[in-house]
């Protein structure tokens, strides 16, 4: 019996996997900076934008940058963007900016007596925020979290993994797919293996410097129950996005 699958956005990679990504699967995409994981994430989002509800959770880009990039590659930006980065700026960074200004220059006398914060202003938990947003998604759906690094930098590893487990369970139950990006080789083994264990598919993007320039690779590191599918593929970037070559 074949799995019901959806496309990952790169036909040859679909073939190398299980003729696509089985519904309910969680994909971990790791890579070093500059290797193209963000572009991959957008291509993955575009692949679902016709028939699925796509939620794109970003921690670093502006909404308009995501949309413009997608349009430039000819992809339909028919996606819902949840901008954790912007929210984080308003709720946390903006305050820190004011604090650092006060620390450098001192609090101006006329601001000494102004209340420091609104009464009972709640500290926002971004992990809870995204799990909540995801829980509202109607199937069929695909979720992109770009990237997990933000959460790993702001919360304890076990908490992030636990939230990821909830998201994965939700996707399994409703037959959605999840793509999570994460930086390569920066976390402790405990966190790394915790995330890797949850993932049904692990992909890695890599850049190799050669005398002729850079050679890009996508490595299939894990496909659940299919160790034989591990492999290494060259890819290039065309005007229509990433493409597996030769």
């Amino acid at each position: 019996m074949a799995f019901k699958t959806v496309s990952i956005g790169l036909p040859l990679l679909d073939k190398a996997l299980m003729d696509g990504v089985p519904e309910g699967y969680t994909i971990l995409l790791s890579g070093s900076p500059g290797s193209g994981t963000e572009l991959f994430a957008k291509q993955f989002a575009a692949a679902g934008s016709k028939e699925e509800n796509v939620m794109y959770i970003t921690t670093t880009e502006r909404d308009e940058d995501i949309i413009t990039t997608m349009k430039n590659f000819g992809w339909e930006p028919n996606i819902q963007i949840v901008n954790v980065g912007a929210e984080y700026y308003h709720k946390v960074l903006e305050k820190e900016l004011i604090i650092s200004k006060y620390r450098e220059e001192g609090i101006p006398v006329n601001e000494i007596f102004a209340p420091a914060r609104k009464k009972k202003e709640k500290e926002i938990n971004f992990l809870t925020m995204i799990t909540y947003e995801i829980s509202k998604l109607k199937p069929p759906f695909r979720i992109i979290i770009d990237s997990l690094d933000f959460f790993l930098n702001n919360y304890d590893g076990p908490k992030v993994i636990s939230a990821l487990r909830t998201i994965k369970a939700h996707a399994q139950y409703y037959g959605g797919v999840v793509l999570v990006t994460m930086m390569k080789d920066v976390y402790d083994t405990h966190t790394q293996s915790g995330v890797e264990q949850l993932a049904d598919i692990i992909l890695e993007m890599d850049m190799l410097r050669t005398p002729k320039g850079f050679v890009n690779h996508i490595i299939i590191k894990k496909v659940r129950n299919h160790p034989e599918k591990a492999g290494i593929f060259k890819y290039q970037i065309y005007e229509k996005g990433l493409k597996i070559v030769g």
Partner: peptide
């Protein structure tokens, strides 16, 4: 009268 806690918040 100044509440130092308020200043603590403002100065992080």
């Amino acid at each position: 009268l100044v509440d130092l806690q308020e200043i603590y918040v403002k100065l992080g």
